[in-house]
Design a protein around this nucleic acid. Structure first.
Lengths: 346, 346
DNA sequence: CCAAAAAATGTGCTCGAACACACTAAAATA
DNA sequence: TATTTTAGTGTGTTCGAGCACATTTTTTGG
């Protein structure tokens, strides 16, 4: 009694065959006005929903998806992505999806180009891309599109009408969140925004976060803090930062815009006398370690794992269930302290 | 070429018919040792996964699920659940699932009993229950089980081997998170844990949170704070709390263990001179309002919407896809300030 | 050694949607 | 009027798993 209507039911109710109903549902034409009317009449008051399970039974094509991201061995920020991909594989194993992963060297644009070339030659149905090199990424996206390969991105945004979906965070807003936290925990005084990264690849990322951070204090017209910016490179960050500390004795807070907060925390823990509040990004083991020790006060979770997972699940929605997918998906920006960190690390 | 293995493929590889493979897969017996060995040999190196889509094609029953929760009109904590149910309905429309919602009066155990009676008479396949009345809930779960109705719970835990799955949060841990936040933002002095609720229904909830909160400071051996507890009832909380404020002039922080932080914030905003940090629960509009004004410093998100959504999606996994489901699912405990609140309210 | 019983194995149908193809009936053309 | 064309309709098969039932093979006992 409690059964869903099938095409056969509709056909019976309308006094036609299932083939005719099928033609109406798919607008394939070749239907008389009379049949059309009677079928539409039935459809209107019967709220028929096609059975997705049956629909996909026949479609036994395996969709191939390539995930392209920086090698987690070079930058452990990307480590959680492996788990995300594994989970997605497991979750969607039942559907016809074949996922393979390709790493590139995050400090080498050539490597990025080469990996994308490899993937292009494989001609998958879709690519899920971490486009950390802006220009090269745009180029890659264009090529994929030329070959009718669907492109979704995550973590970094590439302005392009050719990207089907982007999963990531609002970086300016994450800067504002950091600012709000800083305002609550840091003593009056000087606050430094610290950009620390191997290369320029995170340039846009870091700038957006700084913008949001500064905007917050500007809007609040909060004169308790004097905000300065410091750029650090890998090669000499230790000496440069130690000098910076000496030059700015009234520092009360540090906002590190990349996942390298542990590098700063290490120095602070050794040298600093007075409390300096530290807010950083990402749940790397080293960061968590300083979070637990109290040297880092808060971490902001960019949730790379969830980003890939969602990116893949959108592809399943699109390919397997024929759903249209949103252009942009902004993930929540999680505030993490020592007590709730474990939940976000799984 | 890129196709998943089917039972037919396995049969061919093992030199038997699909019926025999089927018997092996389902351990239905009536298979010779020889056939068993050859099929197992094939299965071992072929990693066969049954096609869930085909498996469920035949099963065209509509599963009926009743969600039983407090009326959001009486306690707006539950308001987000409506959205969660709507989303689940939309998401799982394609699968054979019929979801209906039943509200009871959260201040009236009779109403809880009555609603469960109604639902029991409907004989659904499963019930997703917010068991806020412990004893009555246990009773209801027992009755459901007697009638072979699957019971999942959310938000509140009922100790019972008869509950298939619980979705919620670790309340002690959420108390610890509040404590950690409080330690970072509140000045040295006195901190009050405030239990404020209409009735006793949240008694266990509040106690667990208090336990976690106190444990944190006890473990840290932090002597900067003196922690006291205050119980408030709806009828006279204004007078009682105002008196309490006068009696305790050195208060620097308040931890409100229910969603009623706005009631306290209102009084604090009017009367208090020195900064008193407030940490509360749940993203009610009134709470968010004080969060934006800076009277409330942090809210902890119990994520009722996600709780129901997950509860329903587990039922889909169980009924439609035949997956086994975990006994307990603990959601992350989100720390919310004015800048990231919107993400958790959708 | 043969018949009956038991064990093992294979066949064929079902589920719902999709689509190719066969078929009918009416209209157009010779 | 006979024949072709075309619009309209219905039938039958496919997908993979699951299970009832038919069929074959093996074992048992008289």
């Amino acid at each position: 009694m409690n059964k869903k209507l099938t095409i056969k039911d509709i056909a019976q109710l309308a006094g036609v065959s299932k083939g005719t109903v099928d033609r109406v549902l798919h607008k394939r034409g070749k239907v008389s006005q009379k049949a059309l009317d009677s079928i539409n009449a039935v459809l209107e008051q019967a709220d028929y929903e096609p059975n997705l399970i049956a629909r996909n039974l026949k479609n036994n094509k395996i969709y191939t998806v390539c995930v392209v991201l920086p090698d987690p061995a070079s930058d452990s920020f990307w480590l959680p992505c492996i788990k995300g991909i594994e989970e997605a594989k497991k979750e969607f194993k039942a559907f016809n999806l074949s996922i393979s992963t390709y790493y590139f060297d995050p400090e080498n644009t050539e490597s990025f180009i080469a990996v994308n070339k490899t993937v292009l030659d494989l001609a998958p149905d879709a690519v899920l891309l971490a486009p950390i090199f802006y220009k090269e990424a745009q180029n890659a996206v264009e090529k994929y599109n030329k070959h009718n390969i669907l492109v979704n991105t995550f973590n970094n945004q590439v302005e392009s009408g050719e990207v089907k979906n982007f999963v990531g965070q609002d970086l300016q807003q994450s800067g504002r969140i950091a600012a709000k936290l800083m305002e609550v925990i840091a003593q009056k005084g000087q606050i430094a925004i610290i950009h620390i990264d191997e290369k320029f690849k995170n340039a846009i990322h870091m700038q957006e976060k700084e913008k949001g951070f500064r905007n917050y204090f500007a809007q609040k017209e909060n004169a308790d803090y004097n905000i300065i910016t410091l750029n650090l490179k890998r090669t000499n960050y230790e000496i440069k930062f130690t000098d910076f500390l000496k030059e700015n004795p009234s520092l009360t807070g540090l906002f590190i815009t990349t996942s390298k907060a542990y590098q700063i925390a290490e120095i602070i823990q050794e040298t600093s006398q007075n409390k300096i509040s530290i807010i950083g990004y990402d749940l790397l083991d080293k960061n968590i370690n300083y979070l637990n020790q109290g040297t880092i006060d808060f971490l902001i979770n960019q949730n790379p794992k969830q980003q890939v997972y969602l990116g893949i699940s959108f592809l399943v929605d699109y390919f397997v269930f024929g759903k249209e997918i949103n252009n942009t998906t902004l993930l929540p920006i999680d505030i993490v302290n020592s007590e709730n960190a474990s939940y976000y690390m799984e």
